[in-house]
């Protein structure tokens, strides 16, 4: 069963005549690690909202792990997202007033499944912190007091905890300098492999595409963009 399967997807922003996304087909196999490349404004965020079940397509199917998101209620989509998807965003994606540890544990408070799969969530978070080289004295610090690099690693732990089947990373390295970018991507890839999770890595920076199983250019995929260009 594929981790993600998109068929004949059409999405239009409210009150816009032209669709912004028109994707005939996109499939990500279970455990597959994909680099999705697209310049800013090409509809990456919209695609992630659709995959996350926050936005609903005008036409077509978005299937995650075999479930059609359109067939679920709003609440069920929220729960599905919490249960099966780990998100990593750009900088400042932690709640600044929670400690590193509490931030990492957030998915387990919203998803019983993630909590269950994590076993002892606190131990699981600490193990992941150790894996990602986050010093123990930082674990209880408020997220606001961590460096950008440390924050990115906490965000990674938060996405990984409870072993979600799908990891989605949206420009997670744009705030890092080049050497750190590559180190972070390597870490992420290694953890995805270890957790046997599919990884959808989205970035405008094509140079990061090495090490991934496959690279997909959103522009090539999106007929709406092609129509606009033509």
């Amino acid at each position: 069963m594929p981790a993600l399967s998109i068929t004949d997807l059409l999405y239009r922003w409210p009150r816009q005549p032209a669709p912004c996304l028109d994707i005939p087909h996109l499939e990500i196999a279970a455990g597959e690690r994909i680099f999705l490349h697209g310049p800013s404004g090409s509809g990456k965020s919209t695609l992630l909202n659709l995959v996350g079940g926050v936005a609903v397509p005008e036409r077509g199917r978005v299937e995650l792990l075999g479930s059609d998101l359109a067939g679920l209620s709003g609440r069920a989509r929220d729960r599905f997202r919490a249960d099966h998807i780990g998100f990593i965003f750009q900088q400042f994606n932690l709640l600044p007033w929670l400690s590193a540890l509490d931030n990492a544990l957030l998915p387990c408070t919203f998803s019983a499944r993630r909590q269950e799969r994590a076993g002892d969530p606190r131990r699981a978070a600490e193990r992941l912190f150790a894996h990602l080289d986050l010093a123990p004295e930082l674990w209880r610090k408020p997220a606001a007091e961590l460096s950008v690099g440390q924050q990115q690693r906490v965000a990674a732990v938060r996405a990984l905890i409870g072993k979600p089947e799908i990891l989605i990373a949206d420009e997670p390295t744009s705030a890092l300098d080049a050497p750190r970018q590559q180190a972070f991507i390597d870490l992420l890839l290694a953890e995805a492999v270890a957790a046997d999770a599919a990884l959808l890595f989205v970035s405008h920076d094509a140079r990061l595409a090495a090490h991934f199983d496959r690279t997909v250019a959103l522009a090539a995929l999106n007929r709406a963009a092609q129509a606009e260009a033509a």
């Binding site: 709003g74 919490a82 998100f87 994606n93 709640l95 919203f110």
Partner: peptide, 15 residues
């Protein structure tokens, strides 16, 4: 706004 969006991503519903 960002804080609320993060909570959304982690599974918090609008409710």
């Amino acid at each position: 706004r960002r804080e609320l969006a993060i909570l959304r991503a982690l599974g918090a519903g609008p409710g």
